[in-house]
């Protein structure tokens, strides 16, 4: 037990470069595997949270642009969504990495200030950028689909109440769009979270063996030649976190649907189930 605490102290933040420099080489314990893979998981969470937060905002803007009647707004949004939805993520990683390493190493001069560029080829910046753009495109498509499916009656009701454009959007269109899009958006969030495992798998290089959960799982699977321990551990971690994610998104979903008879019915039925 104490030994395991020591391992956690040594490797708990190894993925960010703190603690022991060398990874364990022999006599692998379960504790080591859980600790290191868990430490890598922090990267997956980092990528997912940043990409989802930034991607959500961007996706809303893109969906509205795509639904716009004005071609100057619609066309670029359509193309952006098409390209990012139309290509595999790891090709996006590959091309992004190839492009980012072309930036001048010494930095770019802007108004006398030298902007460092070395960091953009690192996973924490470069991969996050790709993930943001990727999830924005997928989510925008979902939101756009939901916009098309807005119930006619709700818009008519808003018009009847004399809601102006922004008011109508803020109070009727946007909440209803989210409500309709939410189950698919939950899926997209899960996909994105899972896609973070691709960052070091085929996208960006790992420095000093600082990698994500799958990176360490692969390390252990390679060292022990046994896929049946390390991979189920990552899988377990991901199931737990995905359940958490589904739960959070479910809460939001319930809030979005709280005025609907179906949602109310669900709540009423609950006690029956427990009995």
């Amino acid at each position: 037990m104490n030994q395991c605490l020591q391992t956690i102290a040594d490797y708990g933040l190894r993925a960010f470069g703190y603690g022991e420099r060398l990874l364990p080489r022999s006599d692998f314990t379960l504790c080591q595997q859980f600790t290191l893979i868990g430490s890598g998981l922090l990267w997956n969470i980092y990528f997912a949270v940043l990409a989802l937060a930034a991607g959500f905002v961007l996706a809303n803007a893109l969906a509205l642009c795509k639904a716009s009647a004005h071609p100057l707004l619609r066309k670029p949004a359509e193309w952006f969504i098409f390209v990012f939805r139309g290509s595999p993520l790891f090709i996006q990683f590959f091309l992004a990495y190839e492009a980012l390493v072309l930036l001048p190493r010494a930095g770019i001069e802007i108004f006398g200030l030298t902007v460092q560029t070395g960091w953009v080829t690192r996973a924490w910046a470069g991969a996050t950028l790709v993930l943001i753009l990727n999830t924005a495109a997928y989510s925008a498509e979902i939101f756009h689909g939901a916009l098309r499916n807005l119930p006619r009656g709700e818009i008519e009701a808003a018009d009847a109440y004399g809601f102006s454009g922004w008011q109508r959007f803020r109070k009727i269109v946007w909440p209803t769009m989210l409500r309709l899009a939410w189950p698919s958006y939950t899926n997209e969030a899960i996909f994105l979270f899972h896609a973070t495992t691709l960052v070091f798998f085929s996208g960006f290089p790992a420095f000093q063996q600082k990698g994500d959960a799958l990176y360490y799982a692969r390390y252990f699977a390679e060292q022990t030649f046994n896929p049946f321990v390390a991979y189920p551990i990552v899988a377990g971690y991901f199931v737990a976190l995905t359940l958490l994610l589904i739960w959070v998104f479910g809460l939001i979903n319930r809030r979005l649907n709280r005025h609907l008879p179906g949602a109310a019915r669900k709540l009423r039925y609950r006690p029956n189930l427990i009995r």
Binding site: L23, V101, L102, R105, T121, P205, A206, F207, Q208, Q209
Partner: peptide, 28 residues
């Protein structure tokens, strides 16, 4: 990779050998 991990150098890992040479050429 196991060997370099034990030297004081900063190790950068790529999935295949082409990327290793690309990294040397582009200064990574």
């Amino acid at each position: 990779a196991s060997y370099v991990a034990e030297t004081p150098a900063t190790m950068i890992e790529f999935p295949n050998i082409d990327q290793v040479f690309a990294a040397i050429r582009n200064g990574e």
